[in-house]
Design a protein around this nucleic acid. Sequence first.
DNA 1: TATGAATGAGGGTTCATTCAT
DNA 2: GATGAATGAACCCTCATTCAT
Lengths: 217, 217, 217, 217
Amino acid sequence: MVDQMVAATDPVGNAKSPDSVLASPSARRMQVIDAAAHVFSRFGYHGAGMRAIAEMLGIKVASLYTYFRSKDEALEVVCRAGLEQPMTSLRLACEQETRFEERVHRFLAAHHKLIVQKSDYVSVYMNERRYLTPEATVRINAAAREMRCNFDRLFDDARAEGKMDTAIPSRMARLMLIGVLRNITQFFLEGPVADIDKLVWQSGEHFVRGLAPRPDA
Amino acid sequence: MVDQMVAATDPVGNAKSPDSVLASPSARRMQVIDAAAHVFSRFGYHGAGMRAIAEMLGIKVASLYTYFRSKDEALEVVCRAGLEQPMTSLRLACEQETRFEERVHRFLAAHHKLIVQKSDYVSVYMNERRYLTPEATVRINAAAREMRCNFDRLFDDARAEGKMDTAIPSRMARLMLIGVLRNITQFFLEGPVADIDKLVWQSGEHFVRGLAPRPDA
Amino acid sequence: MVDQMVAATDPVGNAKSPDSVLASPSARRMQVIDAAAHVFSRFGYHGAGMRAIAEMLGIKVASLYTYFRSKDEALEVVCRAGLEQPMTSLRLACEQETRFEERVHRFLAAHHKLIVQKSDYVSVYMNERRYLTPEATVRINAAAREMRCNFDRLFDDARAEGKMDTAIPSRMARLMLIGVLRNITQFFLEGPVADIDKLVWQSGEHFVRGLAPRPDA
Amino acid sequence: MVDQMVAATDPVGNAKSPDSVLASPSARRMQVIDAAAHVFSRFGYHGAGMRAIAEMLGIKVASLYTYFRSKDEALEVVCRAGLEQPMTSLRLACEQETRFEERVHRFLAAHHKLIVQKSDYVSVYMNERRYLTPEATVRINAAAREMRCNFDRLFDDARAEGKMDTAIPSRMARLMLIGVLRNITQFFLEGPVADIDKLVWQSGEHFVRGLAPRPDA
DNA sequence: TATGAATGAGGGTTCATTCAT
DNA sequence: GATGAATGAACCCTCATTCAT
């Protein structure tokens, strides 16, 4: 029923010390996590069954428990990956010493590339993280806080460059940029948008322009 | 388990002929639908049980089936309401013969008011409609098409007023405005945002500015 | 879903004293019993729901309880009718002072006519009476005993006429004749048999011949 | 509630290669099917609950679904067995190169033995097969067609031996022999008949005699 | 590493029945 | 005589999970 998954080869590389199995998981485990991400993304956390994940991998349900202790844990693992990957994008985009507009476009483009490759993870983080265990939520939020700092630095720089209306607080801008992100992701997920590149670029352009100080002020 | 619901007073009024019970659903039925909307919104469609809905109303699970034939149908009813209410907002906002900016702000404000009062419905429409039956999806999409027309008219007028960069196609603008909507809704739902009025206004302002033709062009 | 029933007009006649409502039930009640018989016959007692009976009559389920106290009772009423009608056939066929063969054929023909007109009752009696309440079973069996007596008389006469092998006990013959009955009924119910008249006649002929004393003895 | 079942010993034997578990169902699975047959036979398909089957086996309801996918499927499996076993009897009886009467007696005797050992299966096939899924019905009927052919061959031979009135078409004879079968089965099921052996023999004798050509013709 | 079998809990839904209206 | 609303019990079935193998 569920289409056979394309086995994802280990993206980290193969030069791995044998004792780091947990930290940098085995290739097989990555496949399992990928399958979970795909299924959670497609059917929702509660709509998805362990059955679907197992079928996708061609194994039996009981075997899944070799890879994670519970469905809850699977969700947490997927969500964590779904958060960390955009964080990396943002960090990289901000490290570049370039103009504000360029950084925004770079970040959005990176995010776009990310959701093309890892849409399942991003989608699960965005739509299903609310079903995380309270404890897992705490853990994840700690990581999310770090992302907020990077955003704030981005806007501080923008204001220093005179690219941002001083009446707009950083938090506002952050919320709106996240909105743009969510929007792009959502449209990508709902059905392959033909001119998504243009949507990404124009969304960025629109965001930057909307933030700019009024010319008459 | 679930906190007792606030009884929704009959919105239609109480001067109702006894034979119109079916056409305009009875007050009791409205309460039941409200409860379903609330529970679906809170736990997600698949995460929600008929149990939770029944408990909220203080009745037994079997009694729910007096009001709708299945959980599926309940979702459809809630989604339909969640779509029709914003549609009305948009139509009303567009009928006004005012400047483009004002219409946008009016629409967003109306939507904001709506999600304050009917957040459950909007939230369910936005996040759970993907779990609708294929047939229900078809029915709902038919209604959604009408909404797109109203958007397009809005942007046509904006262009005529010279408020919109001609390089931006209507569809792009529509997607982005929906993004703004989604963003406002999401932030409202995730936790009561203190200064949501300001977020709404600034989102509108940001959207309008971002759309405006470049001064140097 | 269930095809609308053809309203059966009161077969007893309308010259009825107003106080005999229970003994000779009202025309409306007869319709209800007919509907129950039809539904029980079609779906089986446990496979049939009060819902189906009500829909057939165009009324609501709760209204059925005006006509009988419970589903159990409905089954008993239908079964009783399904037993009494063949009993009458048999009694009439046996009262005739004719040859054995003729009586058998007359009885089978009468039964055939009966199942054409009242197949539902006969079918329910035959296939569903095992689901009767223990108490109802006792009541019905008392009536069934009377039928056995009539059979026995029939075979006693046959032996007196020299039409029956004396090695065959009455009980055996009775069981086999009932078998013929069941067989005819079954084939009629399973699908309209084209040449059922012939099947009926040949079954009778076969039965009579099989019973006859061996010519060489 | 339901009396503990007699464990059915593996009919295939115990020298079974470990990889044939699927092809020839495991002994455990046979027990489960036996239990289903027994419960369906006793309470009827719709009158029987998965509860009763599970209790009979001393397991929990959910565990039943390890052995079949649905109650529907259980019915189909039981029905198939209930059809195939008499088919084998008939085939074996017909293969013998003996007189017509002997074949009939042999067939009936075999069927009798069968219903003593496997009454549940036969009973379910006869009384509950009408509740099969449409698709299952198609599948089963295909198998039943084969049985008809064997019957027809039996009667062709009978006619060639001069044991059968040429006025009686094969189909008629088949229907009546099936009637005899049904009759024997029914009486066996309704309550243990003391002299069932005699009933079987006399039914056969009665059937054969009834079929014979008239001496005066 | 993988799995067959088992299970407690709960899923949504239908059931026959009651009762005030 | 008819019904809308309600309900307890039961329905079939799926869930995530465990554990011996």
